[in-house]
C-alpha cells in the first residue's frame, strides 16, 4: 500500500475578477508530493505561482478543487484548527524574508514555537540550535535590519523549519540573493527537507534553481506540465 502523500492537490482552479475582466490563472491543476520529494514549479511572472503557494498553504480559497496536506482538506477545517494545522504541517519561506522587524533573529525563529504554546526558554533554546545549524548563532541577538539579505533569508528558513513541518513551501526563496548566497540558501532548504523526510515545493522563475530539485513542473493555465 503506497504511503499517503504529504501534499495532494485535485482539480484546483483559481482566477480573479468578474465578467469580462475575469482572469483565470489556472484550472484543473492536480499534484501529489510524497515524503523526500523536492518539486520546483516554474513559470513566468504573473502566471499565478505565488497564488498557488497560498492555496497550498490554506491561506487562500480555490474557486474549485481541493488541497489536502497530511490528508486534511483545508476547506473542511474551521479557522482555529486550520491555523493550528498550518503551524504544525507547513513551513513557508518568502522571497522577501518577512521577518518581524522588532524581534531579534532568535525571537523570530522562536515565534512559531511560542505561538504553539511552547515555554519561552525551550523555544529560545530550539531557536538558537537552529540558528547554529544555519551558521548564524553569533547573530542570534541581532535585529533583522542589521543582517545582510542572505542572513535574513537563512533566519527565515530557520523559522520555517523550527516546528519540523512535513511540507516546506518556498516562494522565490533566492529571488533577492546573489548567486553565492542563492546556492547556500538552496542547499539549506534541500537539506532541511531531506533531513526531516518531508516534501519541498518551491516556485521560481530561475531555471538553475529549479534544476536543483528532483522534479520540475511548469505552471500553465491548464495546470502543471512536466518540464
Amino acid at each position: 500500500m503506497p504511503a499517503e502523500p504529504i501534499l495532494a492537490v485535485d482539480s484546483l482552479a483559481r482566477g480573479f475578477g468578474d465578467g469580462e475582466a475575469r482572469l483565470e490563472l489556472f484550472s484543473g491543476l492536480s499534484l501529489s508530493i510524497g515524503a523526500g520529494e523536492a518539486v520546483a514549479i516554474v513559470g513566468p511572472s504573473g502566471c499565478g505561482k505565488s497564488t498557488l503557494l497560498h492555496l497550498l498553504a490554506g491561506l487562500d480559497r480555490p474557486d474549485a478543487g481541493r488541497v489536502l496536506v497530511g490528508g486534511r482538506d483545508w476547506e473542511t477545517l474551521a479557522p482555529e484548527p486550520k491555523a493550528k494545522w498550518r503551524g504544525e504541517s507547513v513551513g513557508f519561506v518568502f522571497q522577501l524574508h518577512h521577518l518581524l522587524p522588532e524581534l531579534t533573529a532568535e525571537e523570530n525563529v522562536a515565534l512559531p514555537l511560542l505561538l504553539a504554546g511552547e515555554p519561552d526558554a525551550r523555544a529560545r533554546a530550539t531557536a538558537r540550535e537552529l540558528l547554529a545549524r544555519v551558521g548564524l548563532v553569533r547573530q542570534a541577538g541581532a535585529l533583522p535590519r542589521i543582517l545582510s539579505g542572505g542572513e535574513r533569508q537563512r533566519v527565515a528558513i530557520a523559522r520555517a523549519v523550527v516546528r519540523r513541518p512535513r511540507l516546506l513551501l518556498c516562494d522565490e526563496p533566492t529571488g533577492s540573493l546573489d548567486a553565492a548566497h542563492a546556492a547556500e540558501v538552496l542547499d539549506l532548504l534541500l537539506g532541511a527537507a531531506r533531513e526531516r523526510a518531508g516534501a519541498l515545493l518551491l516556485v521560481t522563475h530561475d531555471p538553475s534553481v529549479a534544476a536543483r530539485c528532483g522534479t520540475v513542473l511548469t505552471l500553465t493555465p491548464r495546470g502543471l506540465l512536466t518540464s
Binding site: A57, L59, P79, E80, K82, A83, K84, R86, G87, E88, F92, H98, L100, L111, P112, L115, A116, R159, R163
Partner: peptide
C-alpha cells in the same frame, strides 16, 4: 499576515 502563515489563529 506573517503571523497567520506561522500558525497564529484569528483569535490570537
Amino acid at each position: 499576515a506573517v503571523l497567520t502563515v506561522l500558525g497564529a489563529a484569528p483569535g490570537v
